[in-house]
C-alpha cells in the first residue's frame, strides 16, 4: 500500500512507525518493570498488558483515520477539492507530535523505572493504580497527554492549511475534533464502567 501511494505516503508513514516503535519501547519497559518475575500471575499480567497495548495502538490509528475522514468530509462540504492522499499525508505527519510525546515517556521511564509489584500486591485491587501514580513517567504521560493531542491537532491544521485556505483548515480540524469527541464519548458510554453492575 505504501509503495502504491508513493513518496508522500512513505513520508507520512515514517512518523507513525516512529510513534509505534516508541509505544512498543514504552510498553516493554513499563510492563516488564511492573510485572517482573517468573510467577504465572506476572506472566498472565504481561500477556494481557501487551495485548492491550497492541489494541490501543491499532485503535489510535483508526481514530486518526476517522479524524482524517471527518476533515475530508468538512473540506469537501466547504468546496475544497483535496486528494485523499493529501489527507493521509497530513494525518501521518501529525504523528510526529505523538512520537515525540511517547519517546519522551520512554526517556523518563529509563531515568525512573517503575518498581515491580510483588505477587501479593497483585491481589490488591488498587495496587497497580497506586504504583502507576508513584512512577514519575506514568504520571508525566498522564499530565501531558492533552498537550500531545493539541500538538497533533495543530500540526494537522497547519498541514491542511498549506493545501486549503487557513479558515477552511481550521473549520475542518474543529469539526473533526468534535466528531471524534462524540465518537469517543459514545463508545465510552456504551462500554460503561469496567466493573459489572
Amino acid at each position: 500500500m505504501v509503495k502504491w501511494l508513493g513518496r508522500p505516503a512513505r513520508l507520512a508513514s515514517l512518523p507513525v512507525l516512529v510513534w509505534f516503535a516508541g509505544l512498543a519501547a514504552f510498553a516493554l519497559i513499563g510492563i516488564d518493570g511492573l510485572f517482573a518475575g517468573p510467577n504465572p500471575v506476572f506472566v498472565i499480567a504481561r500477556v494481557t498488558a501487551y495485548v492491550t497495548v497492541v489494541m490501543v495502538a491499532a485503535v489510535t490509528t483508526a481514530f486518526a483515520a476517522a479524524f482524517g475522514v471527518a476533515c475530508a468530509a468538512m473540506l469537501n462540504w466547504l468546496g475544497e477539492s483535496l486528494d485523499p492522499r493529501q489527507i493521509v499525508n497530513a494525518m501521518g505527519r501529525s504523528f510526529w507530535c505523538l512520537a515525540a510525546y511517547v519517546w519522551l515517556g520512554v526517556a523518563s521511564l529509563i531515568l525512573d523505572p517503575p518498581v515491580a509489584l510483588t505477587v501479593f500486591e497483585m491481589s490488591e485491587p488498587d495496587a497497580l493504580e497506586a504504583r502507576m501514580r508513584e512512577t514519575k513517567a506514568f504520571a508525566w504521560m498522564g499530565q501531558f497527554r492533552y498537550l500531545a493531542l493539541v500538538g497533533f491537532l495543530a500540526t494537522a491544521g497547519w498541514l491542511l492549511a498549506r493545501r486549503t485556505t487557513p479558515l477552511n483548515a481550521l473549520l475542518a480540524v474543529l469539526f473533526a475534533s468534535a466528531a471524534l469527541a462524540a465518537l469517543l464519548t459514545g463508545l465510552g458510554l456504551l462500554a460503561g464502567p469496567s466493573v459489572g453492575p
Binding site: 500500500m1 491499532a58 485503535v59 483508526a62 483515520a65 463508545l187 456504551l190
Partner: peptide, 17 residues
C-alpha cells in the same frame, strides 16, 4: 463497533480486536 473501525484502519483494528 470497534471491529467496524477496521474500515478506517486498513483492517488493522479488526485483526487486532
Amino acid at each position: 463497533l470497534m471491529l467496524l473501525l477496521g474500515v478506517l484502519s486498513a483492517g488493522l483494528v479488526t485483526i487486532v480486536v
